Amino acid sequence: MQNINKTVVKSMKLLDLFRTRSSLTLNEMVELTGLPKTSTHRMIVSLEEVGLLQKDHTGTYSLGMIFLEFGQLVSDRIDLRQLALPIMKDLRDEIGEAVNLTIKDRAEALYIEKLDTSHPVRLFTKVGRRSPLYAGACSRIILAHLSEEEMENYLKGQALLSYGEGTITDPTLLREVLNTSRLEGYTVSHSELENGTTALAAPIFDYKGQIAGGLSIAGPSDRFDEQQLAKMIQKVKASAAKISHALGYR
């Protein structure tokens, strides 16, 4: 910390203002940061020179177009599985149950990573497995956080078939569960894809605030009593939030 460049830090303080504001004047930046006007102006000129800020004909500043280029480069280079894996390992080691990572692939959920439990009795799931978006916590958490239009288009064209004794096949009930999942930030399923199983999942968001995938814990139902579920829900939500943060979600 002793070698930190104070000018760089102050410049980032200026750029950080544009997270919540599309444009600002010099005076507004001075007022919001509390930095001296003279030094603020020098930093703005430098930021404009390298393309990080741009000024319009009224003298108002906004983020430079170079951020589009950098943003796309970062987006292209992000590997969700690679970012999620160490967080998944910590979660699995803490709770002792299988942890799954899913993404949306067309009209299905696709398992792109799985860490098994150490228990001798376990669920059969593998990387590459697919499941319908409406069935099972790991799938439904993605469906719950799609846009209203995308969700409705899916539900209108999807036959709700039963995979287990707990599969939700009533469209009205499914919509209620989806709405609750969106509000509470998690979902739980019991015997939806396989009888005798329980799963709970939380959403993962990308830097645009859009759903990027789902993180779930799953296992035999007899290991998921109410007390255990309450603890696991908080842990899976916290782990999903860490992955979202790594993807740039704020």
Rank of each mutant, 00 (worst) to 15 (best):
R182G: 00
R182N: 10
L183P: 00
L183E: 13
L183Q: 15
E184R: 15
G185F: 00
G185C: 01
Y186D: 01
Y186P: 12
T187I: 14
T187H: 14
T187M: 07
T187S: 12
T187F: 08
V188A: 03
S189E: 04
S189T: 12
S189Q: 06
H190G: 04
H190C: 07
E192T: 09
E192D: 08
E192C: 01
E194C: 05
E194F: 05
E194Y: 08
E194M: 13
N195Q: 06
G196Y: 05
T197Q: 08
A199V: 02
A199M: 09
A199C: 13
L200I: 13
L200E: 02
L200H: 03
L200Q: 04
A201W: 00
A201N: 10
A201F: 04
A201R: 14
A202F: 03
A202R: 11
P203Q: 11
P203C: 12
I204Q: 08
I204Y: 12
F205C: 09
F205N: 03
F205S: 05
D206H: 09
D206W: 13
K208C: 14
G209R: 07
Q210S: 15
Q210H: 13
Q210V: 08
I211H: 08
I211C: 08
I211V: 15
A212C: 11
A212K: 06
A212S: 14
G214A: 11
G214S: 11
L215E: 10
L215K: 05
L215F: 10
L215H: 02
S216E: 03
S216L: 03
I217T: 04
I217F: 08
A218F: 01
A218S: 14
A218P: 01
G219P: 01
G219A: 05
P220T: 10
S221C: 09
S221L: 05
S221P: 00
D222I: 13
F224V: 05
F224L: 07
D225V: 02
E226F: 01
Q227R: 03
L229I: 10
L229V: 02
L229R: 11
A230I: 04
A230Q: 10
A230R: 04
A230W: 12
K231V: 11
K231T: 13
M232S: 03
M232F: 14
I233M: 07
Q234P: 11
V236M: 05
V236P: 02
K237R: 15
K237F: 03
A238I: 03
S239D: 09
A240L: 13
A240V: 09
A240G: 08
A241K: 13
K242F: 07
I243Q: 00
I243N: 02
I243D: 03
S244R: 04
H245Q: 15
H245T: 08
H245F: 10
A246C: 09
